[in-house]
Nucleic acid binder design. Structure first.
Lengths: 246, 246
DNA sequence: TAGTGGTCTAGACCACGCT
DNA sequence: GCGTGGTCTAGACCACTAG
């Protein structure tokens, strides 16, 4: 990096973008961990040999992408799934009436498999690579409501156990962050209406051919690396999937 | 507004927020219409007696809220639903394979009613106020796929006709913008899985008790004023509702 | 009181689109 | 060449937090 002139063609990018990338590398490498304080704007400006305003613009963007959180008077922190606010960004099923609450969590089965071609493609791993697969039933006030199947790359989630998953009810991602050093920062979902199959109807205690909301999610960590595939089936009689278009 | 000192308590707000509000008023009042060029940053800075940087920060935010669009070298424009890019922000149903395309549009019925208590509450109007109601069937390549019921406040959408609606297939909001001076800037949706009722199964040509995606939308114009309520039923066999969590 | 982020300014120069 | 938005700097002061 050059403090007096910016590299021009063919790979020109603004200084603040370069700073942004440097900070992201610090996040990705674990130099600054979720929940921790990063250096002040002035410190970073000195370290990177740019003005405070340029660091500020980089942090502004990272903050609007939910990778950093600014707190006036205190400093800038690495975002974490431990904050309750963040968790509802990734839990879009809300009760029709009343406040959102945390579901109870039951892991029905967890096993190690080899990636099928479909899963390998989605998780960007090789056919036959190790995969952790489990499915779980989540209930609100004792009423079974959400049934999820989840596939994770085995190379990252070594040693994941049903016990740990059940303890971390509504905040699986904070477990991943703490114990597997993997922070989910973005997810893409495909939502459909389907009919309950046999397994779903039994576990959710509803009749066959009840309508269910099917939500397929691929979640990504830094550098757009896919690290979770999930297929969820949700009862939407007293809940709905919430979305805002802006 | 004061150019040399900012008002403090109890109604303190940063200068750039005040500028932002002034620009929004210009948008709302129609001083600058969708698609038009607004004055340059320097012109606005002079007009509002602040520095260019302050105007810039105000425009930055309006731009990230999709109210304005900046084009380097050309100027800053009022966002419009006429741009194809914008239209897909509000059409979340995508084909499982292939590119998104525009549906054909058939208005089945359009009538004037009086607001029920439910509709009055949602649209923030009085019980019994005039309402335009219609429902329409949209098809992709001749296959019926989307069935929508739509309620609009009659005071705003005077003279809306089925003919005009059918001509404006995939971009109803651009029609609203041009002919009724009402620009949708934000919407909130509740998504559920339901079973086809009799009317839906006939119009969509599917069997009773097929699963359908139900999407209830409330759309807002400036100042968070609700101006549309919509209840949609979508076949998700070859389409899905797309969403990104960030 | 010291240190942090937040706001505001003024000025320089760059990149882009058009004439 | 000129006008637009885009980047970068340097410095001043404000608002919030914590010791």
């Amino acid at each position: 990096m050059n403090s007096t002139s910016i590299e021009k063609s063919p790979t020109f990018s603004p200084l603040y973008q370069q700073i942004k990338m440097l900070i992201m590398q610090g996040l990705q490498s674990g130099e600054w961990k979720p929940g921790e304080l990063i250096p002040s704007e002035m410190d970073l400006a000195v370290r990177f040999k740019v003005s405070q305003g340029t660091v500020r613009k980089a942090i502004d963007e990272l903050s609007s992408e939910n990778l950093l959180v600014r707190r006036q008077g205190k400093g800038t922190f690495v975002a974490t799934h431990h904050e309750p606010h963040v968790q509802f960004r990734f839990l879009r099923l809300k009760p029709d009436v009343g406040e959102a609450s945390y579901p109870q969590n039951r892991i029905i089965e967890l096993k190690r498999l080899r990636a099928s071609s479909e899963i390998a493609q989605i998780l960007d791993i090789k056919l036959g690579d190790p995969v952790v697969y489990f499915y779980r039933l989540q209930s609100f006030e004792g009423v079974p409501t959400m049934l999820d199947e989840i596939w994770l790359p085995g190379s990252i989630f070594k040693g994941l156990s049903a016990k740990r998953l059940e303890e971390h009810a509504g905040s699986m991602y904070s477990l991943f962050e703490t114990e597997f050093n993997t922070r989910m920062i973005r997810a893409v979902e495909k939502v459909r209406a389907v009919l309950a199959d046999e397994r779903a109807s039994e576990l959710l205690r509803i009749s066959r051919n009840s309508p269910l909301l099917s939500v397929e999610r691929v979640a990504y960590t830094y550098a757009d690396q896919p690290v979770e595939f999930r297929r969820g089936l949700y009862i939407t009689e007293h809940f709905h999937y919430f979305n805002e278009l802006t």
